[in-house]
Write a protein that binds this DNA or RNA. Structure first.
Lengths: 131, 131
DNA sequence: CCGCATCCAAAGGGATACTG
DNA sequence: CAGTATCCCTTTGGATGCGG
């Protein structure tokens, strides 16, 4: 089954499917799911950030990973990169409309997990004590 | 700032924060975000699955990775593992109530991305043609 | 200030073979 | 059927140093 953008046929209803191996939606989901991408999107959901400010907001991210992550997100059309040629140089990152939608969904997920910490902690303790 | 479950103080309002380095909610978000965990949760959102059926549903996953992923999700209290001792043996996987909630959020995200494939594809083409 | 390049250690993840 | 164990290659990701 699983129709996707990679499907060859001259189909009339071409629906993407995250379960399909080569589907762009699956690849995008993977891009978004990465540790640093999630946090970068959540941070940018709060408003625009300059590179180093974003780096401080996302605790523990290295320059390299933040840079790579932002490039991927920019390429997917989720993040804009605005270069202000000045001294010192400034680069402002923000979400596109699509990025806003994605960040909104992630926010809901993050809120749910933040509220569920006690439950998760208990589940882990139970699992670990059983072996 | 960033209060979390690892905070020491005798605080009255202990709120988890996914941005905090050692926060359980951040770790859980990472568990959920992994390529295979996302797809496994989405699949289980459709109903219970046995191991090999789930493996077929999640195209491309290896036995090893599916097994590992399910263990992590079980430990976090998102998935239940029901062993039916019979010949041949059967193991049924399903979502917990918390898992259902998480899977629901993921479904919304996946739907959004599936609908946005043309937009993402266009963004990538534009990005790549610029260098 | 922004971020690319290089190096290197550590984790991720696939293929295969084997057990209950 | 449902895994575990092993091997081994690939990717991730941090640290450091340099350039615009």
């Amino acid at each position: 089954m699983s129709a996707c953008d990679t499907d060859p046929g001259p189909s009339q209803e071409l629906v993407a499917d995250v379960f399909a191996r080569g589907c762009t939606s699956r690849a995008t989901l993977e891009d978004i799911g990465s540790k640093w991408a999630q946090l970068a999107l959540l941070a940018l959901g709060e408003g625009g950030y300059r590179f180093n400010a974003l780096r401080r907001r996302v605790e523990g991210v290295s320059e390299k990973m933040l840079s790579q992550t932002l490039q991927t997100l920019e390429r997917d059309g989720l993040v804009t990169r605005d270069v202000v040629s000045a001294i010192p140089p400034r680069v402002e990152y923000a979400l596109t409309p699509l990025g806003e939608q994605v960040a909104g969904r992630l926010r809901e997920l993050a809120d749910l997990l933040e509220r569920s910490v006690p439950q998760v902690t208990a589940a882990r303790a139970a699992y670990d004590s059983r072996g």
